[in-house]
Design a protein around this nucleic acid. Structure first.
Lengths: 128, 128
DNA sequence: CGGCATCCCCCGTGATACTG
DNA sequence: CAGTATCACGGGGGATGCCG
């Protein structure tokens, strides 16, 4: 590494957005807070692609999850604006869950992480 | 903004990289496992850009962290191949920490998450 | 300087039972 | 069908003190 003396805030595009290590970490942690949770990613990937799934369909798609955890994770993501809840007032009750636009926008970001994780195996360690 | 409302699914129908909701979630969770931890992101962002920092420098950079947590998070990331530990055998002891190439490769992925998180405020929610 | 060991607490998670 | 409520547990994380 040649020059590291510059005040590089790791900024990729050198645009107006200047991140310090602290603010950048906080931003990512904010994202992590939303995604953290034993089942959230699993739920998310079941909902990607604009799919709408009923509560019971999600239960079947994720057999190991309990009703409590399913509703808890869904509620949290709904509160965070990632998941949207569509209630059909009828008997028997019909509730569907899907992603918001912002939730859909997670796809490329998670894909980047997926790609990164895959590098571990593919990449020949240049780890000095 | 990029259009994510179309066929941006991770393509289960596609060829080559066929992720199911389960495998994709597992992949991202694998990445999350590595990044999860109260201080890891903060440490990471202090190390981005090929910077090498001593233990005591990291302590000063992150005042709120305890020695136990600092070494714990560093060790875990070292074990995961994200952080590399450089020991200079001398008196007094001198130990520096930096990122592996794989660790550096996290930058764009985390940037994607950062960008996504920023969308929440900037983007006028068309959350239907 | 750069750790390691111990105790303690909190909260996320799981199991189970009940309800509109 | 789609939840709600309660109890219990384990581990991640904080504070503190000691070692090479």
């Amino acid at each position: 590494m040649t020059r590291t003396d510059e005040k590089v805030r790791y900024s990729p595009e050198g645009k107006g957005s200047a991140y310090t290590p602290v603010t950048a970490a906080e931003g990512v942690e904010q994202a992590f807070r939303i995604l953290e949770g034993r089942w959230k990613l699993l739920i998310l990937f079941h909902l990607f692609g604009g799919k709408l799934l009923r509560f019971s369909e999600l239960e079947r798609a994720i057999p190991a999850i309990s009703q409590k955890m399913l509703i808890q994770q869904l509620r949290q993501m709904e509160g965070d604006g990632v998941v949207r809840r569509i209630v059909h007032h009828q008997v028997p009750p019909r509730v569907e869950y899907g992603l918001t636009d912002w939730g859909q926008a997670l796809c490329p970001a998670l894909d980047a992480l997926l790609t990164w994780a895959a590098l571990r195996e593919n990449g020949p360690d240049t780890v000095t």
